[in-house]
Amino acid sequence: MRGIGFNSLTMSLGFLILIGIYGMVADTATTSYLHAMVELMILAYSLNLFTGLSGYANFGHVVFYGLGAYTVSVSAVGLSSMGMSLPTPVYVLGAGVFAAIFALVIGFPILRLRGDYFAIATLGINEAVRVTICNTKELGEGRGIYILGLVPSYDIKMLYIQLLLVAFAVVVTTHIVLKTKLGYGLRAIRADEDVAEIMGVNTSKYKIMAYALGAFFAGLAGGVVTLQFACSFPEYLFIGRSVDMFSAIIIGGIGTLLGPLIGSVIFWIVKDALLIQFPYFHLIIFGVALIVLILFFPRGIVGLANRVLAKRGKVLE
């Protein structure tokens, strides 16, 4: 390997620093464009931590993002009714922690399921939470909760820095996971869970760790977005959002360190271009592209690059 993993890490972090500087000097429109791209990147990494490494199809990942968003808005409303307010990073951290706790609670039962059963269960939980929010008066029903003026004043550049810090954290976490027993265990589970278990991998512990870790970062992203838009909607839990995340990690290379980054940048630029060019047909084009990618390039761009690089004895992660 000869320290090649370090190269992938420096490339990812270097790219984040570059778009960080660019976002700070650019006008606010560009900053919010990049803000949305980095948000997708974090979600892609958080999905990659569990689904990418273990191969478990989590179709309810947005539930953590949505719960993170609601954690911020509900706590902001609650605290302001008592005349209090907290610095923004505290809200964001709270969002991540709540999402991770929720993941631990639901993870114990549903991580016993495999393959299609797991996919159904995650989808079901996601929809159950969304429908419950839509029908709970205290959670604003379908209208959402608005927190304008209840949290410290709004500044897109400040939020962008916070989001970039989260992105840094998720990239470094992914790197660490890939290099430690957790990552090897998860990849063994993806290859064959029964064999992994027989070989001494503590499969249920590893699965729940990765599941909660992914939920934590998705919750953080949801928290920052709630601060950005000063509201949280049930729309945040719409499973259509999973399309973006899955597309990003499949384009880039599932279960890799560079993949979610490359994938989400390409996906975001292409999606924007297609949306402007073909406002009515872009999702059809995406559907076709998703199928073609899965059938013919299941390892994504990182996989393709590795086919070339392997001849020179190098590997990207």
Binding site: Y56, A119, V243, L283, F286, V288, L290, I291
Partner: peptide
């Protein structure tokens, strides 16, 4: 399972 789920999800989008 993940590949077939995602491909059929693509069909659903189309």
């Amino acid at each position: 399972a993940l590949a077939s789920l995602l491909a059929l999800f693509g069909v659903s989008m189309i």
